[in-house]
């Protein structure tokens, strides 16, 4: 006899597994993208894919998946809570850190914009 709790557990298990598999593919695509992009300012796109799709969503998926596993005993709530907090921390800190690096590299003229159409902030960096 199927109760409501069984349906909720099944939904949580499949959503969690789907998010983890999505995160694995996104991380692999981001690693390939780092090699294929040509200058520093294009690699910021690969960093965003690698950190948000590759590391925030899988942590939420692990949090949902570990609620349904009864092998872990009573400590499954601890794993679920800790990984959800880690997902929130990465969601807030990763864009701030990569924005700080991008601003510092542009202001100190370390990296040029190599196939360039226009750079309105600083005309010398257009390559």
């Amino acid at each position: 006899m199927i109760s409501v709790l069984d349906i909720v557990e099944l939904i949580l298990k499949f959503v969690g597994l789907g998010l983890i598999i999505l995160g694995g593919f996104a991380s692999l695509i981001s690693a390939i993208g780092f090699h294929r992009f040509r200058n520093f300012y294009l690699r910021l796109h690969a960093t965003t894919i690698g950190t948000i799709w590759g590391c925030v969503y899988p942590l939420i998926g692990i949090s949902l998946l570990s609620i349904t596993l009864n092998d872990l005993g009573a400590s499954r709530w601890f794993i679920a809570g800790a990984s959800f907090i880690t997902a929130l921390i990465i969601l807030i800190l990763a864009p701030a850190g990569s924005h700080a690096i991008a601003r510092a590299i542009h202001k100190s003229k370390t990296a040029r914009v190599q196939p360039c159409i226009a750079d309105l902030l600083d005309k010398d960096l257009c390559g």
Binding site: G50, C55, A82, S83
Partner: peptide
């Protein structure tokens, strides 16, 4: 940056 955040997911897995 990206290596370290992927390492975090590896540790929790």
């Amino acid at each position: 940056d990206t290596i370290t955040y992927a390492t975090v997911v590896l540790m929790v897995l």
